[in-house]
């Protein structure tokens, strides 16, 4: 149970393992599903459909998952320079 909320740092940024699994699953399913929908004798079409699926998957995961970053805006109090 507790593993669900484990956060780790990979590729220089923080992720939640559960969200990563969801994201990889959604992206892969969208990509491969789109690929298999393409006419099977046309390589370029297959590739194109697959990519479209990947983009759709990316959009879906973007909506579902929130970034694990705290953004702080630092007002510029230090000396400015022209």
């Amino acid at each position: 149970m507790e593993k669900k909320y484990t956060m780790v740092e990979i590729w220089g940024d923080v992720i939640r393992i559960k969200d990563l699994i969801v994201s990889v699953a959604i992206s892969s399913i969208f990509t491969m599903a789109a690929y298999f929908l393409a006419p099977s004798n046309n390589r370029v079409r297959e590739l194109f459909y697959g990519l479209l699926g990947a983009v759709l998957g990316f959009i879906v995961t973007n909506v579902l998952i929130k970034p694990k970053r705290v953004i702080v805006f630092e007002e510029n109090l230090k000396g400015n320079k022209g």
């Binding site: 990979i10 590729w11 923080v14 939640r16 969801v22 994201s23 959604i26 992206s27 995961t61």
Partner: peptide
């Protein structure tokens, strides 16, 4: 707006494809 998880997911699915 862009979660790191989505980017990793995108890469993995591209390699898979």
């Amino acid at each position: 707006k862009i979660p790191h998880e989505s980017i990793i997911g995108l890469f993995i699915s591209l390699i898979l494809l």
